[in-house]
Design a binder for these strands. Structure first.
Lengths: 210, 210, 210, 210
DNA sequence: GATGAATGAGGTTTCATTCAT
DNA sequence: AATGAATGAAACCTCATTCAT
């Protein structure tokens, strides 16, 4: 058992090593310009080895998105775990969580959207697609939870919590996407955090009872 | 001159014909799965002909985004052109404009994000990139204008109007993207309009003085 | 029409050009050792061009077999077309036809068997498989015809003509295969024709009434 | 010595185990589609282990053919060992031997032809090629022996016995090949034994004095 | 201007074989 | 002896783009 376990851990380490390399290459070159050879070189492995750990390019790519979703779920569950006292405080915790996710992996988030274009999604194995689906639901639910609490405590206006969660997530990802592309088009400084702060302020005013 | 003009119009017609075909194909297959031959077939032209009107695949693709940006600018300028009376009413007009844009071309909007991933943007000709930049600015400015008016009339809270415009646009595009990908992943019904309505309500509450 | 026809003929010429090159390469290196690049080089074309005329390597390969089957059918129908006079004479004509086929393409015949290994067959398009089936049947029928005539004229013993045709064809192909492989293993001189002559003599004695 | 012998026997057992697995896999998938990993899995060994017993894929493959040749030689020598009484009876014994060989391993026989395509043969080690050569000769000689006896006893017509043996073997293998491929192409019932019976009858009539 | 056959670079993926453990 | 992870060469095939007609 000990041996089997160690092998498993070894295997996981390799997967991580490859994913780290892949993340670097994908964020640098984008999905279709990045080649498996690039990734192999970055991981200091041979191309064939990557295929021992990931079925194909699409799945390697999707695995990266999975990782960030996992991180998001963990962060959100943390927010939920703390005892509810104040709606405003909780919203701030939520904002911090989202900013953390962004900082965990600023560029891959954009690529995640690329992945969610029907183009890529349709080529994923049902298994992976399923996992993504589950995590998506989970994170939405964790966010919805926060809003439910707020509504129950009469601190938030009475809107369907899932819809509100969707909106906040859309807002967040929209900003990430938009700011990043502006940065590329206009070669502007990164205003993301300022924008997100303002956005959150507006959102809070919009959601809280006065 | 007359001849030159007619030729120019003829040329423009061809461009449109190709863009219509390209839109259909890109929407159906996504950017990288769509081949120039697919597009040529759809346009009932030969592949070579397309290159007489568009420098390459990327530029053809970007031209589609340009078109929708143009439509957006026109719609926003309409909103601005009307005399300012009521902030709430104006916000509603703004919302309607955005929903119009969405309905003008629901799927290409998502692909637009794909385009805005660094991957594609970096391959555009400076000329086209410039045009996109100008239109982006223009549309942002048109939106900012609306918020400026609202602030000046003390109906909106005093936030930097450009930032607010960015946020609204991000919110809108984030929702389009998110709802669409949920639809694909979960095979859910299209809640886009309902979600956008709620989002707009929250946004309005957030932005308006009470 | 004239243009369309000429194009069609031009296209057919290209196909032939590729097939001639492919035949050379396949007979030289065998199926799996031969690369599409080898064939392209031999045909003085680029690899991509080959794929404009043949869907993939398997189909290019199978097309060669089709060609020899076509030749066989033509030769057999010639034998059948001549008025029946003498069984012995007809058998000789049949033998000559088979030897002709062998000389038309001595090595590809072996490869044809390679193709008929389930391994390869399973990857062919139903269309091509169908064509091969039809030609196989046709050639067998043409041979069976000869034996039917012989039986009707009481010159051959009364065995089921199709079975006899099968047997003769098996005998022929078995000899080709066997002699060729002996040639490779033992580096022997090519006894094929002598062997086939003897085989035919025995077969004739076996099939003719005394 | 005892130890050395036991080791040798152990080693032989392993070889057999691998060959049995290889036969199953080759039969199922054909030579080039079968991977060493498939075979290893079937043998419940690791890929590396196979290379301790067989130099490479080709040699493993050829070893299978060797085995069936060995079986053929043994069966033929049995036929020869019985005292000669009657030509017809002996021919029947010969036929039975061949059918036995076929039943010993119906599919690998076809693959054997694949092996005999120049493609594979050229890659074998001289040693193995030599063994195959010896066994081929031996089996041919055993068959030739039978015909020599028949000629000497004036029961068979006076043809060169080796040539006749070649022909019979060609006939047999041609039928196996042809019937099998017909079965695959046309999805027909397996007429092999009936065909071979008829073939043998014709061959006997052809070879025996009347 | 329009065509579409041809190009050929370059991508993904496979798999026989090796070698450190 | 046995393992099996890693290798990396090489194959097939695609497709944006060109250019002679």
């Amino acid at each position: 058992m000990g041996i089997k376990e160690r092998k498993e851990r070894e295997r996981e380490r390799r997967r991580q090593q490859i994913m780290v390399a892949a993340k670097r290459v994908f964020t640098d070159k984008g999905f279709s310009k990045a080649t498996m050879e690039d990734i192999a070189k970055e991981a200091e492995l041979s191309p064939g080895t990557i295929y021992l750990y990931f079925k194909n390019k699409d799945e390697l790519y999707a695995s990266l998105s999975l990782r960030i979703l996992q991180y998001l779920v963990i962060r959100l569950e943390h927010v939920n775990a703390e005892p509810f006292t104040d709606a405003a405080q909780r919203l701030t915790a939520l904002k911090d969580a989202m900013v953390d996710v962004y900082e965990f992996d600023p560029l891959i988030l954009i690529n995640m959207f690329h992945m969610q274009s029907s183009e890529t999604l349709r080529n994923l194995s049902p298994d992976l697609l399923g996992q993504i689906e589950i995590l998506s639901r989970k994170s939405l639910k964790a966010m919805a939870n926060i809003f439910e609490d707020g509504i129950r405590n009469e601190m938030f206006i009475d809107k369907h919590p899932t819809a509100v969660a969707d909106i906040l997530w859309s807002l967040f990802s929209g900003i990430v996407l938009w700011e990043t592309s502006k940065k590329i088009i206009n070669d502007e400084k990164d205003f993301l955090k300022e924008t997100f702060d303002t956005a959150f302020e507006i959102f809070s005013r919009g959601i809280m009872r006065h």
